[in-house]
Amino acid sequence: MRIARVGPAGQEQVVAAGSDGIWHLIEGDDADLALRTALDRPALDDLPVIEQVDRFGPPLGRIGKIVCIGLNYRDHAAETKAEIPGEPIVFLKTPDTVVGPDDEVLIPRKSTKTDWEVELAVVIGREARYLDSPEQALDHVLGYAVSNDVSEREFQIERGGQWDKGKNCETFNPFGPWLLTADEVADPQQLGLRLWVNGKQWQNGTTADMIFGVAHLVWYLSQFMVLRPGDVINTGTPAGVALGQPDKPYLRAGDVVELEIDGLGKQRQTFGAA
């Protein structure tokens, strides 16, 4: 099932795509309850139809935490001249970085190195605590979505401390347009990821190139933290980021970034100045 939240920012309503691909409204004042209602319904065709979608918001209304994985693609590690990590590199993004897939993204003040990262986002649907093995992990996944892990490389790398300063600027996590439930994804390690800036393609990768796959990540993280329904894992980005290019073509106000993942939809953001 495809689930989304549509409408003006802060006033989104939960919708789901029926068998005909048309969006149907899941009524209810509480977004989480509406989401559960959508998942539990055997059919949507008797619900009101959304004739026009003017804006997709993030597909989740209440995100618990966003756990991000760095250097998780072999080609991305190579382009940045980094060693292949022996264990997943973990950092956090705050949920208030999340915006809709086509919302404006703000380049921070004094930023000269704002970068893009198309990523597969994993949404947790069932609590995962000290899982015994990766084989158990996918049973705890609700679904998948597109994420842009926007990053400011100077803040991240050159300003001391952890990566968080370059990852948590406002609007730095466009998310969506929809959540595709896990039963619709035959193999999360066989998805293509692509990204363009101003019409020029920079990223064209596959989740098959992940160093640590989705199942391993869910299992691994459960050894250090409790993963709860509504948590999101950004699983890393393939080669093609600005940081890895000889001329470092970082983003500027007015640039347009488009990205997509097989079966999960497309995003399009115009970047502006904070």
Rank of each mutant, 00 (worst) to 15 (best):
A4R: 12
R5K: 13
V6H: 08
V6P: 10
V6G: 11
E12Y: 05
A16T: 08
A16E: 09
A17K: 06
S19H: 14
S19I: 12
I22P: 00
W23H: 06
L25R: 12
G28M: 02
A31Y: 00
A31W: 09
A34C: 11
L35A: 06
L35Q: 13
L35K: 05
L35V: 11
T37E: 14
L39H: 03
D40G: 15
A43I: 03
A43H: 10
L44M: 02
P48W: 00
V49A: 09
Q52G: 03
V53R: 02
D54C: 05
P58A: 15
P59L: 00
P59C: 03
G64R: 03
G64M: 06
C68A: 15
I69K: 05
G70N: 01
Y73W: 03
H76W: 02
A78L: 12
A82G: 03
P85A: 05
P85D: 00
P85M: 01
G86D: 11
E87I: 10
I89P: 00
I89K: 04
V90W: 01
V90S: 00
F91G: 02
V98R: 06
V99C: 12
P101R: 05
D103G: 08
V105Q: 06
R109C: 05
A121E: 02
V123Y: 02
E127W: 01
A128N: 07
A128H: 02
R129T: 09
L131S: 07
P134A: 09
A137W: 08
H140L: 09
H140E: 06
L142W: 03
L142V: 08
L142Q: 06
G143L: 07
S147H: 08
Q156Y: 03
R159M: 14
G160W: 01
G160Y: 00
G161M: 04
K167H: 00
K167Y: 01
C169Y: 14
C169K: 03
E170G: 10
N173V: 01
F175E: 06
L179P: 09
P188K: 12
Q189E: 14
Q189M: 14
Q189K: 09
Q190A: 15
Q190K: 15
G192I: 07
R194F: 05
L195G: 08
W196N: 10
N198Q: 08
G199I: 10
K200P: 02
Q203V: 13
G205I: 10
T206R: 13
T206A: 10
F212P: 07
G213A: 11
A215M: 08
H216L: 08
H216I: 00
V218T: 08
S222K: 09
Q223C: 04
Q223F: 00
F224Y: 11
M225A: 13
V226Q: 05
R228P: 01
V232A: 10
T235D: 09
T235N: 08
A239D: 10
G240M: 11
L243M: 14
L243V: 06
K248A: 07
V257C: 07
L259T: 13
G263K: 07
K266N: 12
T270D: 04
T270L: 07
T270C: 13
F271H: 06
F271L: 15
G272N: 13
G272L: 15
G272F: 07
